[in-house]
């Protein structure tokens, strides 16, 4: 018998520190497999944020730089501008990129920075124990919206990919999910495309991946996937929101 599924070389042997059932691990596997398949592990520098995704710096096999909360893209731009022929990607939580890091997300796209940004959207601040994030859904209970997020005082969830897609410098924007094998395959394709966009130097590539947070949602890992499908997918526009002609012809 032949081994048909095994851990990609893009990941180290360090066990993931995420909560049981947290789909961060799937997303990182897809990125790591992409790096291996595109043969860029040794040319890539990853930028980790502050938050659950921060530990990614120990799980990927490539070089990594730890950024301050919200600043991963600015740090990544510094690396990319210094080493234009290397591959730079940022791996950020929704709180990191859509709350404190919003201005860097907007301007990275506006400038068409030739980096790849992956946002893990679980509609909550995970690392700090489950507080409301800009992506938290209406009515969703969190530690800082204990009675459910009320639009009146805390506003609407931000669909960052939709915002980024409007900026000319963003040439590839996709919103995907890892809640099912089929969607995982779709997410892998989008992530791979986002890296290929960078390799071709076409502009800013951005993939948002819906993800679960069983611990802070207070739902079992299996039911979390269902909750994501029923509650998050209707709010966040899914699919490839922007694919320029140049990207299509890649």
């Amino acid at each position: 018998m032949k081994k048909v599924f095994t851990k990609t070389k893009g990941l180290t042997d360090v066990p993931f520190s995420f909560c049981p059932g947290c789909t961060h691990g799937i997303i990182m596997r897809l990125i790591a497999e992409t790096m291996e398949e595109l043969n860029i592990i040794e040319d890539t520098i990853g930028i980790s944020p502050v938050g659950c995704a921060g530990f990614s710096q120990d799980f990927f096999s490539c070089d990594f730089v730890g950024a301050a909360h919200g600043r991963a893209q600015a740090v990544g731009i510094g690396v990319k501008r210094a080493l234009p022929d290397r591959v730079v990607f940022t791996y950020q939580g929704d709180g990191d990129i859509a709350a404190i890091g919003t201005q860097h997300a907007i301007h990275s796209a506006a400038r068409g920075e030739k980096i790849t940004s992956i946002m893990v959207n679980n509609a909550i601040f995970g690392m700090t124990g489950g507080q409301m994030a800009p992506t938290t859904l209406e009515g969703m209970k969190t530690k800082t919206s204990p009675y459910g997020r009320d639009i009146e005082s805390t506003g609407f969830p931000i669909d960052l990919p939709k915002v980024i897609a409007n900026l000319p410098g963003a040439v590839y924007v996709a919103s995907v999910s890892v809640d099912s094998p089929k969607n995982i395959a779709q997410a892998k394709k989008a992530i791979k495309r986002a890296f290929q966009v960078q390799l071709a130097g076409l502009g800013f590539a951005f993939v948002s991946v819906l993800s679960t947070c069983p611990t802070n949602w207070g739902i079992s890992p299996v039911d979390s996937l269902k909750w994501l499908r029923e509650n998050m997918m209707p709010i966040y526009e899914m699919g490839e929101l922007k694919v320029t002609e140049e990207v299509k012809s890649l």
Binding site: A67, A68, G78, V79, L83, Q103
Partner: peptide
């Protein structure tokens, strides 16, 4: 940069190389 926070973090990234 978009602001000084962006600028210093870009310096951080470049200095890493």
């Amino acid at each position: 940069a978009e602001d000084e926070i962006g600028a210093i973090n870009m310096c951080y990234g470049a200095a890493c190389t």
